[in-house]
Design a protein around this nucleic acid. Structure first.
Lengths: 111, 111
DNA sequence: GTCATATTTCGAAAATTTTAGAATTAAGCC
DNA sequence: GGCTTAATTCTAAAATTTTCGAAATATGAC
């Protein structure tokens, strides 16, 4: 029974690690079908077991999804969750920042 | 000499804790001049020393700023940093999500 | 079934984070 | 100076995270 704050915190925490943020960047920019774990491993140059842990953290937070394809596992971004998270962050960030609404270009007191 | 990924990760990590995320919410929605630490403490109902640590984490990440006013310390959101962070997250989230640009309403494959 | 490839799970050590009581600093008032 | 309020820093224990080699699992090819 975790509320929206706890869920957002979990997801932000999952993103709050250089390796995991790099993983997400690759996955987001990779093919829609998903990026094989092995490719991530060779790109990021970290031990497979370490990578696997980070991928599990991202998956547990609901930020990525997995699908097996033969012997390889493809990881792809869960854009719905990412979208929900950024929306939530915006509400926190912007509701008191001088602008209403959720448009980034009019948010956070810039311009 | 930390790059943009490391900085974003540090800030996301700072937000990745229920208490700190709650602090930020209060601070963002609080007065522009800043919210006194004591008020945050009574609202969140946690020991002062624990709160102080979390506030330091947020300040170190550059997400909030402090100003003394008599005996009280007022914490206010650094909207510039928050804005930069959400921008960065959007680029990661959206560049591969089926939409270009950085408009949240056309991002992450929704609609 | 055996072999090879891809990836995870196990196990454990090192590092970091979280928590909070006690002591300390800072500012204003008498 | 002494007193009070506000908040931080000190100290330390408990919990969590990070890391990665070794072992295990899963799939497909022969």
């Amino acid at each position: 029974m975790t509320g929206p704050v706890e869920q957002a915190a979990e997801q932000l925490k999952a993103l709050g690690h250089p390796v995991r943020l790099s993983i997400l960047r690759r996955v987001v920019q990779g093919p829609v079908a998903g990026t094989p774990a092995g490719e991530l491993q060779s790109r990021l140059d970290i031990p497979a077991s370490t990578l696997s842990h980070h991928l599990a953290t991202l998956a547990d937070a609901g930020l990525v999804q997995v699908a097996r394809e033969g012997t390889t596992l493809r990881y792809r971004a869960d854009f719905g969750s990412l979208r929900a998270l950024t929306d939530y962050l915006w509400q926190d960030c912007c509701s008191g920042g001088g602008a209403s609404g959720s448009d980034p270009s009019s948010c956070c007191g810039r311009d």
